[in-house]
Simulated assay, not measured.
Amino acid sequence: MITCHVRYEIDPEQIEAFERFARRWIELVNRHGGVHHGYFLPAEGASDIAYALFSFPSLADYERYRELFGVDPDFIAADRIRDESGCVRRYERTFLRPVTEGSSE
């Protein structure tokens, strides 16, 4: 399993747009073989940082999902929310692998 952690710098004035953007991507990840663990928006402290976590069974599965970016109309529509609203100032992705009780070394 591979988990993607995304750190967003968002426009605090565009929280509603960011939430629309987030709901669309949750649905797309889940529809295309991943499991979205949610978006986490500011509640206290810094008001311009948000996070997302989602997993795919493998990096190859994630790469198949990424092939739809810029091609699939639903992916384009989800990105349009971000682009037209300016809700995301920047983001960075990190790929992680879980270590859990019972996972092998």
Rank of each mutant, 00 (worst) to 15 (best):
M1K: 11
T3A: 05
H5G: 06
V6L: 03
R7A: 00
R7W: 05
R7Q: 04
Y8S: 06
I10W: 02
D11F: 03
D11S: 11
Q14Y: 05
Q14H: 08
Q14E: 10
F18D: 03
E19I: 03
E19P: 04
R20V: 15
R20L: 14
F21I: 10
A22L: 01
R23E: 15
R24S: 10
R24H: 07
E27W: 11
E27C: 11
L28W: 06
L28P: 00
L28F: 00
V29T: 12
V29S: 13
N30W: 01
R31Q: 11
R31G: 08
R31T: 09
R31S: 12
R31Y: 05
H32P: 02
H32Y: 11
H32T: 01
H32S: 01
H32W: 07
G33H: 01
G33Y: 02
H37E: 00
H37Q: 04
H37I: 02
H37D: 00
G38P: 08
F40P: 12
P42S: 11
P42L: 06
A43N: 15
A43I: 14
E44F: 13
G45A: 07
G45E: 06
A46K: 12
S47I: 10
D48R: 11
D48L: 08
I49Q: 04
I49S: 07
I49L: 13
I49F: 02
I49C: 09
Y51N: 10
A52W: 05
L53A: 02
F54W: 15
F54A: 12
F56K: 08
F56Y: 15
P57C: 12
P57V: 08
S58D: 12
L59S: 13
L59M: 14
A60T: 14
D61L: 12
D61Q: 14
Y62G: 08
E63K: 15
R64N: 13
Y65R: 01
Y65L: 01
Y65I: 02
R66M: 13
E67D: 15
E67M: 13
E67V: 14
L68M: 14
F69G: 14
F69T: 12
G70C: 04
D72R: 10
D72Y: 09
D72W: 11
D72I: 13
F75M: 09
F75C: 02
A77E: 05
A77L: 07
A77W: 04
A78H: 03
A78L: 02
R80F: 07
R80I: 05
R80V: 11
R82N: 09
D83H: 13
E84L: 03
S85W: 00
G86H: 05
C87R: 09
V88W: 05
R89Y: 06
R90I: 04
R90Y: 01
E92S: 08
